[in-house]
């Protein structure tokens, strides 16, 4: 399974990439694989204030809808609206298909994210 070493991960199968003040967030290979063909994505709006543990978006396959929970609190600064018209890109290329960029308000939340090896272990346990 593809788990890039340069990213951080959450227990709920999201990845996070820190770029300067922003953190880009998407769902992992494992997540897209277990969802199947993704047909719809719901994203937050720029300016939304998100609290960790809250759902910030939804991804849907034909027969399932999954909320995506944020592990970070902060303000949404960018949203990848291309995914609205091309949700299949999440299946094709999950690590390029970032969903939002958030400016985190609590640095401590970044520290508890998993690294690639810890996340891989988690996936193995779940499978």
């Amino acid at each position: 399974m593809n788990i890039p070493a340069d990213l951080k991960y959450t227990k709920k199968h999201e990845w996070a990439r820190v770029e300067g003040d922003l953190v880009y967030v998407g769902i992992t290979e494992y997540a897209q694989n277990s969802l199947g063909d993704i047909v719809f994505v719901e994203l937050p709006s720029v300016g939304d204030i998100i609290t960790s543990g809250e759902a910030f978006g939804v991804v849907e396959s034909v027969k399932a809808a999954s909320d995506i929970y944020s592990s970070l609190s902060g303000i949404v600064k960018e949203v990848n609206n291309e995914l609205i018209d091309h949700p299949e890109r999440i299946n094709q290329n999950p690590y390029d298909s970032w969903m939002m960029a958030i400016e985190p308000s609590k640095a401590s939340e970044l520290e508890v994210l998993l690294d690639a090896s810890a996340y891989e272990k988690l996936c193995l346990e779940e499978a």
Binding site: F40, E60, S61, V62, K63, A64, A65
Partner: peptide, 12 residues
């Protein structure tokens, strides 16, 4: 468009 419906979305 069944993900709008109760048997998938339940309370949502």
């Amino acid at each position: 468009m069944q993900t709008r419906e109760q048997h998938i979305r339940r309370e949502k």
